[in-house]
């Protein structure tokens, strides 16, 4: 253990023994994981196993009951005021299953809003960057379109650009393809793949097993609020150690 700690750098995201309950239902029962800078990890598992909740906890959207979450130098469980949480969210961006674009703003405005209003950056610089980001996700032509004029996949790619505009250290993706048509999933996944290849730290909750195998350096299988098994995709998908993992994979593959 000690030897390892000296050779590997300090992880960017460190989750230790996190518990979270909603009322009487405990959805996270002691989850721990480390994510290194530039790493892409995938969390898979049946619905209701607490995957999305974990991402929400890391982003400070829901408070945890016990345990610690550290992102860079932020101890997430200790952030109390809005001000402190906002500081965290400048480092950690999240993309949602339902895209959640602001429907009364154009694609470009959606991307520009947070940097202009939260980071208080120069509007012209932000515009240049936002246009570049839209181009990167393949939607330069749709800059002036409103969310309602875009397909689900296009909206999701705008949402990714919107999250990237904050220049985060970590990107959280919460089942971003679950609400999409099969033909539009491809483009969204391509965008994420490109990001991961460029070295962006990504944490993905996903049901796309082939994608997880291809992109992730580590895959976590969660069930019933705990991490049942984790490891490199080749190991987890081809030689799962636990019976529960095997049962789940045989259902979805």
């Amino acid at each position: 253990m000690n030897a390892e700690a000296t050779t590997t750098p300090r992880p960017l995201v460190s989750v230790r023994d996190v518990h979270k309950s909603f009322g009487h239902v405990e959805v996270l029962k002691g989850v721990s994981m480390d994510v290194q800078k530039g790493e892409a990890i995938c969390i898979i598992g049946p619905s209701g196993s607490g995957k999305s909740t974990l991402l929400r906890c890391i982003n400070g959207l829901v408070p945890i009951n016990s345990g610690t979450i550290r992102v860079r130098d932020f101890e997430v469980q200790n952030l109390k005021t809005d001000h402190e949480k906002i500081a965290l969210r400048k480092e950690v961006s999240m993309v949602f299953q339902q895209y959640n674009l602001f429907p009364h703003k154009t694609a470009l405005d959606n991307v520009m809003m947070a940097p202009v209003h939260v980071l208080r950056e120069n509007r012209d610089e932000v515009r240049t960057r936002a246009l570049a980001l839209l181009k990167k996700v393949g939607l330069a032509a749709k800059a002036d379109a409103y969310p309602g004029e875009l397909s689900g996949g296009q909206q999701q790619r705008v949402a990714i650009a919107r999250a990237l505009a904050m220049r985060p250290e970590v990107m959280l993706f919460d089942e971003i393809t679950a609400a999409l048509d099969p033909e539009t999933i491809k483009d969204v996944l391509a965008t994420v793949r490109e990001l991961a290849n460029e070295g962006m730290t990504c944490m993905l909750v996903t049901h796309e097993m082939r994608f997880a195998r291809e992109v992730a350096s580590t895959v976590y299988f969660t069930d019933g609020g705990v991490i049942v098994e984790s490891g490199p995709p080749a190991q987890l998908f081809d030689r799962p150690a636990k019976e529960r993992t095997r049962a789940f994979l045989s259902q979805v593959l």
Binding site: R89, F102, A114, A159
Partner: peptide, 10 residues
Amino acid sequence: EAAESLGFSR
């Protein structure tokens, strides 16, 4: 929630 996660204040 999306606005919050982008760091908007309340």
